[in-house]
Design a binder for these strands. Structure first.
Lengths: 356, 356
DNA sequence: AATATAAAAGAGACCGGTCTCTTTGGCTTT
DNA sequence: AAAGCCAAAGAGACCGGTCTCTTTTATATT
């Protein structure tokens, strides 16, 4: 029977104070590291705390200080490499600044996102980093911000929300790759996104609630229009939210008589699925189909051919958002910053001239 | 100037009670959903709460109930697809059961892990899911468990720790693929892991502190011995913790005169890097080198050739650990369960007969 | 109508810290 | 030696909920 230190059933400052023979207030001063205490007393209290295996109760501390030392993070899906990398950026900065992170997945569902915010508010997080599921539905976020809670938006902004925002230059990136495809002679270029609309069809960019994706599609359509290509709205496909759905959409698209000669995939999960369908259908990339994907996932350089991608500074997105938030938490006031991080096209071998 | 509801500077039950004209205790009964109240009073309180935009303070609630509704999760690195998928499994179960998740990365460093546990203990999490960095250094975990905090181990067990544990049948999986390679005539088989030893060299399986990896290496060495291959310890390489290090190790290995004819990669990040080095060196998989990787990452089926992998039920690992923990939290007592989930070899095309 | 019984509401302690305000004690100052 | 001052320690309220215990009110019983 070994039970060395005596089963710590919550030792409190009062217990430590009693053991050290001082008042609760004095013990609290030593343990909490504030106020002034004599060296002799400090040692006595420290010794008593060690002997009793005292563990501070951060919850109780939060009660009076009003700070919980916690930030809430709401992302679409931590399983998606995009978010897991961004979250890594967030947690690194948060830890450095002495905060812990409560993570909630919204599954890109606004209802779940609202519930998440409510939960985090109840847990009294000191700040919030959110990747909003719908730009058009941010009343819950505005309310949180208005009540004075620091809020930073990740990857997706909202003009309706005057808060710190960190996004990538999605429109510019989309314009660049579209221009490149057009100059290679492509007229039938499909854009494929996981975002969905009520009727699962695309009509206009305004239908798309995810800010980053809407800006990309605007860029895509803008360049097409500029190049004299009309009716390109019909080539935007929504609802590729799972590998299965993507498979269905891409297969149908590539088997139709009027099939695209190039596909722009809005994330690496979609890009991967396009690759698989081509293999199954016996189509060659880039001879039969050119492929460009957003997100420089690590595997995109080892396929045959390697995939041309838009490299986003994903870690930096999370890192920057967290830094902005931490600054707010440390009392830095002033205007909300809207930071746009540069993207870069990584040229590999998945695009070529349009087939004749 | 719009400021519809009056800037909620923390509305408390007392405020609601006052507005509704009832006592604090009664208002708390309505708001907290306990005890008995008349319908009339319930409505009055509910209305007052809505009017004042009352938000419960979960922290204060935790003070008295002793439950925080939070579980702490410590993993090596959320950026690694293995962990992000496992964490997804954990968060799904946690949310279902009404818990939120505080996530901390240990970076596979025991010191950081200890700090993480301390932080989580201070935050008074209701339970803990940990993927221990070192099996040999679990005193902090034992102490947490002994103080009555439910603890579940993820992917890595410890005989020294009698707590709920969920792992994969790593040894069996390693035996299977090693046997396959041996039967194809391979004698020079390298095993590559991110785990490290003090001197960055491998001597015996006991050197490896990560349980899952140690079991795999034991399986690997066991089958080799069985097959009459001796001194295979020299073929185990440790310290492939980053793509850069992996690159260095693999390049050196493949450029040596006595180079391996097969490589077993301990995770998909390593597998990917092996692939890249082969491409750079102009070596053909599987003609010049056979490759097997642990973790059926989504990209492994689209490379040329597609990679033969050990498929682990990663989501299920997290899911199961969370379920066990939730059961404990709901008071189910009894023996600690040690669950071993099945793995499966997915045969693709990256292995072949040993070159002559 | 009088009593028993249960339901509804109130009063106030409590959780474990922080923090303000007050008291004590040692040391300087002239 | 008396006054003045500041560091060190103590007393107790407070944060915002929960919960026990007590009192009041409504309903049932004969």
């Amino acid at each position: 029977m070994d039970q060395s230190p005596p089963r710590n059933t919550s030792v409190t400052v009062a217990d430590v104070a009693h053991k050290a023979g001082v008042s609760k207030a004095t013990a609290a001063r030593v343990l909490g590291g504030y106020g002034t205490v004599s060296d002799r007393v400090r040692e006595a209290v420290t010794a008593a705390a060690r002997a009793l295996d005292y563990r501070p109760n951060e919850l109780a501390r939060s009660m009076t200080t009003g700070r919980s030392g916690t930030i809430g993070v709401v992302v679409g899906d931590i399983e998606n490499p995009f978010f897991s990398l961004a979250v890594r950026g967030i947690t690194d900065v948060a830890r450095q600044a002495g905060f812990t992170v409560i993570l909630i997945n919204s599954g890109e569902d606004v209802g779940a996102e609202k519930a998440a915010i409510r939960t985090l508010l109840a847990k009294r997080v000191d700040g919030l980093i959110v990747s909003p599921a719908k730009e058009s539905d941010v009343e819950h976020l505005r309310e949180a911000a208005r009540s004075g809670l620091p809020l930073a938006l990740l990857d997706r902004g909202s003009d309706a929300l005057d808060v710190d925002t960190v996004i990538a230059d999605d429109r510019h990136a989309a314009e660049g790759i579209t221009r490149r495809l057009v100059s290679l002679g492509h007229h039938r270029i499909a854009y494929l996104t996981a975002c969905d609309t009520p009727d699962h069809r695309f009509h206009a960019a305004g239908d798309i609630n995810t800010g980053s994706v809407r800006r990309r599609i605007e860029g895509f359509l803008g360049v097409c229009r500029e190049a004299g290509l009309i009716g390109m709205e019909d080539w935007v496909h929504v609802g590729a939210a799972t590998p299965e759905q993507t498979h269905r959409i891409v297969t149908a698209m590539l088997q139709s008589a009027h099939r695209p000669t190039a596909i722009i995939a809005s994330d690496s999960v979609i890009g991967l699925e396009v690759f698989k369908v081509c293999r199954d259908l016996g189509l060659s990339i880039p001879d039969d189909l050119s492929l460009v994907s957003f997100h420089d996932a690590d595997w995109t350089s080892v396929t045959t051919p390697p995939v041309t991608v838009v490299r986003q500074p994903v870690y930096g997105l999370g890192e920057t958002a967290a830094k902005l938030l931490v600054e707010r938490l440390n009392g830095k006031g002033g205007e909300a910053s809207r930071i746009v991080l540069r993207t870069e096209v990584v040229d590999r071998a998945s695009i070529a001239d349009a087939p004749v």
